[in-house]
Amino acid sequence: MKAALTSALAVLAMLLGWEALVRGKAVSPDLLAPPSAVLEALLRHPDILLDQGLSTARETALGFLLACLFGAALGAALSSAALLRRVAMPWVLALQIVPKMALAPLFVVWLGVGAPCRLAFAVFIAFFPVLIGTTAGLAGTDSGALRLCRVLGAGWWQTVLRVRLPYAVPQLLAGMKTAATMALLGVVIGEFVTAQQGLGYVVMFAASLGETALVLAAITLLCGIGVALYGGVLLLELAFARWYGAPMPAGEFG
């Protein structure tokens, strides 16, 4: 609580300092619009920002959901088939090292400059952390618990439902948290390269006009979308933790 207060104060001090710096003509407002100007930009173009923001939010949310679905399904498939894992996992890992976000233009080639391109790219970017979280979670089941299941003559389905899944969910949630950030990133980069609509487009357009205030206003909204989605996963995690009732193993999957 106290820590949150200190850091909130730090942010407030930073904003005030920023404002003072610009007002005091130490920094040109063209380079760094002061917070007041950003607020003004937000209020001046509500319809544009809201429209473009909704587009970005919609695509991000849909991309995130699809990424979770595909990632979890493929992760489960990889975990249940050792051969498939041996064949596919090195490629999944190889794709992890490659700067995936640079592949956005390919999606434009394939899917044009519309929403399908941005959506597909967001899914492509966000799906890996979920996949890796799922496989790591399913592989991380306590071996003793699995032995117990065998002793008790538990069936495959029972073992999955009663033991493997509860052990896997914390890692899956960690993957989903990363995916939430990644989905937004994917949509924004998609908007950069398709240059049709969305907050990413607004950022690029406004930057090219030197409208720093509008750039920062759009980025503020982007942060809002990111925090909302991440917060949603966090709430899910909280609900799960309440049911789980024990310290959960944490994980990060970039």
Partner: peptide, 9 residues
């Protein structure tokens, strides 16, 4: 924060 979005800045 979607840091990459700050690129144009």
């Amino acid at each position: 924060l979607p840091k990459v979005a700050l690129g144009p800045l």
